[in-house]
């Protein structure tokens, strides 16, 4: 490549870094500007784990479910943080993006639109932490969370597990979002997908208390590795060989999802330009 005409279709790492820096500062400013809206979404993210702590503490009250009331509190508190950090909304937005023609200018840019979405969701997650962290602390105190097995090692292991989970869920949901290029109404599909996260990902209950068929099924699907795995790593309930199996599953699913994403994106763009929106 000559210096005068850099190949913009394959941006250099340096150019990509600049792009991310630019996008991040814009997106952070945007999220701070609309902090009221961010606060409302965060409030929504607090509700589900809050209610579930109550439900499961009521279940554990005087009965042996394999977990104590304090352990449930700890589980759903970490679940809230992991759910927030891995959450993206793009599958709900693509239908609108395509219908309104929002995509057309993005496709004309010499960079893949996924980069802007990565920055958008990262900025939201960072700004949202200002609400999530105090909520998590309050939750832990009020419901007397019991972090039994957690240690500094488990917290250290949690960081890569969380980062991989964020990458995994982002790519998988971005793939799903592409379905909007072929379907005009995607709400049902999205709702179904959310239900998978709820039950197979461990948002509704620790997978260990779920029926056996869910436990088995969840092992081979990506949902568990995006939510349940990082939670249990943080709580120190997954160590040794299981930890490495989990990382392996995360990486394998990311690799598979990236491959699917590339394939789908190419077809989606071809389909989009053929239909002409």
């Amino acid at each position: 490549m000559s210096a005068e005409s850099p190949d913009v279709t394959k941006p250099s790492p340096r150019a990509l870094l600049d792009l991310y820096r630019g996008e991040m500062s814009v997106m952070l400013a945007w999220n701070l500007q609309y902090r009221g809206a961010v606060f409302l979404w965060v409030l929504g993210a607090v509700m589900q784990p809050l209610v579930l702590i109550v439900v499961w503490q009521a279940v554990a009250d005087g009965r042996d479910t394999g977990m104590t009331a304090g352990e449930y509190a700890a589980y759903f508190m970490v679940s809230m943080i992991v759910s927030h950090m891995t959450f993206i909304w793009h599958m709900w937005e693509f239908e609108w993006r395509i219908r309104s023609g929002y995509f057309s200018p993005l496709l004309l840019r010499p960079v893949h639109p996924i980069h802007a979405d990565v920055c958008q969701s990262l900025a939201y997650k960072l700004v949202g932490l200002a609400g999530i962290i105090p909520a998590a602390i309050l939750m832990a105190v009020i419901f007397r969370a019991d972090f039994g097995n957690a240690s500094w090692q488990s917290v250290m292991a949690f960081l890569p597990a969380l980062l991989l989970a964020m990458a995994l869920r982002f790519i998988v949901e971005w793939c799903l979002a592409l379905a909007a290029f072929w379907m005009t109404k995607v709400a049902s599909l999205n709702q179904l997908f959310d239900a998978f996260f709820l039950f197979l990902g461990g948002q509704f209950a620790p997978i260990s208390v779920m029926p056996d068929w869910i436990q088995t099924l969840s092992f081979v699907l990506p949902f568990r590795w995006s939510i349940y795995f990082p939670i249990q790593v943080a709580l120190g309930n997954i160590t040794g060989a299981d930890l490495w199996i989990g990382f392996g599953m995360q990486i394998a699913w990311i690799a598979l999802a990236v491959a699917v994403l590339q394939l789908m994106w190419k077809r989606a763009v071809a389909n989009y330009s053929a239909v002409g929106a």
């Binding site: 500062s25 952070l28 400013a29 701070l32 500007q33 902090r35």
Partner: peptide, 11 residues
């Protein structure tokens, strides 16, 4: 004014 800094200040 524009920018992240101004956004934080305006809080």
């Amino acid at each position: 004014e524009a920018g992240v800094k101004a956004a934080v200040v305006s809080l």
